[in-house]
Amino acid sequence: MGETAKIPVEKSHRKTARGVGRSAPPWPTVAAFLLPAFMLYTIFMIWPLIQAVYFSMYEFKGLSREGFIGLGNFKELFTRYPLNEQLPRAFMHNIAFFIGTMLIQNTFGLLFALLLHGIRKGKRFFQSVYTTPYLISALIVGYLWNLMLNPLFGPINNILKAIGLEALAHPWLGDPATALPTIILVNGWQMLGFPLLLFSAGLAGISDEVREAARIDGASRWQLFTRIELPLLTPVIGVITVLTFIRDFNAFGIVWALGGVGGEPAGSTDVLGLVFYRTAFQGGIDAFGLASALAVLMFIFIFGISTLALGIFRRLEDRLT
């Protein structure tokens, strides 16, 4: 009896997950609701996108469009010195930037979310505190850290010196070996609030009954985390991964504020966003087409990887249900 009762319950559960469709309104109504947003979206998003693709295939002299050159601009990106060296280097930095940020923000974001989930008093307060840097413009965060890390006047080195750790005082942003890791740390610190909020919401969404059931079955806190909470957070991890990926491959503000427009020192903090900026605004007379080509490449790459990642996470989620 028990056996047979179990199966239908699961089945009906799966059905409700798909949702029960209500009859859809007639299409003119749907269209009327969608049209305003669609128009705005087309004018401000789709149209510039198409234009960028279009411009990327033309030669430019200043703002005046010359002849069609097909993939000429794309070829230039990979053959013109020093672009041909800066582009792959910046790409690798973006990868490091993404992986480093993920490690820092997610480790600490999840840790704090777990700690905060357990407390009753002050939860909101701490959530707000940890989230504040995330709400501040990257440029301001960059500027503040720039002041703090200043090798001559900055408090960080002064404190290290004052407490006798002079050997650790270092021109953090001036040494190519430490500049990128420093910027990644600052970025991870700033972005911490983002996974924290999402993980908190995810943890709150896990029913207490599930936890209780696990505990009754004798699960330790660690088992509860690894067997119950973490798997159920998979969709949240997916969202964070994809959004962080997009954000970090479009990174500009924080790197610009800390490493300057050239990704100083000596290009050790250069990222694609900065290469794009330099190409577009400090480039030669053909900058317009070249920059469009780079923008198109960045879009294709980010869109492609993001779609791929979404597919993978969807499969992982399917396995959970």
């Binding site: 998003m45 996108l49 469009s292 879009f299 980010i302 779609t307």
Partner: peptide, 17 residues
């Protein structure tokens, strides 16, 4: 994802366009 991506690209290309 689509929105964020397009916003990103529009921000890039928008400046040029």
């Amino acid at each position: 994802l689509m929105l964020v991506l397009l916003a990103g690209l529009a921000a890039c290309s928008g400046q040029v366009v």
